[in-house]
Amino acid sequence: MLTKTFVLQCPVGLHARPASILISEAEKFKSDISIKYNSKEVSLKSIIGVMTLGIKTNESFELIVQGEDEEQAMARLEIFFNEEIKDL
């Protein structure tokens, strides 16, 4: 299992567009991926779960990845949260 803390860097917060893209990225891996924020954990398979966490810009959260391709999945999502999300 891999865990890592990120800071939400998209300017508007985790709105429908960044959330949709995040979910379609997570779907590409076999691992179970979830986000933990304010001691609440939700699966990245659920857009409702991810959006209703209500993470705001500049707040930090934890990403938890578990499964056979966990390293690739974490590497991919690191790029998403550290780089790509800034343009969404």
């Binding site: 429908a16 949709s20 979910i23 699966s43 398979k45 659920s46 857009i47 409702i48 779960g49």
Partner: peptide, 16 residues
């Protein structure tokens, strides 16, 4: 148009 993509994700959402 992207509205419909979001609708589809909600439709198939596992929590829902």
């Amino acid at each position: 148009q992207q509205v419909f993509q979001a609708y589809k994700l909600v439709l198939k959402d596992p929590i829902f």
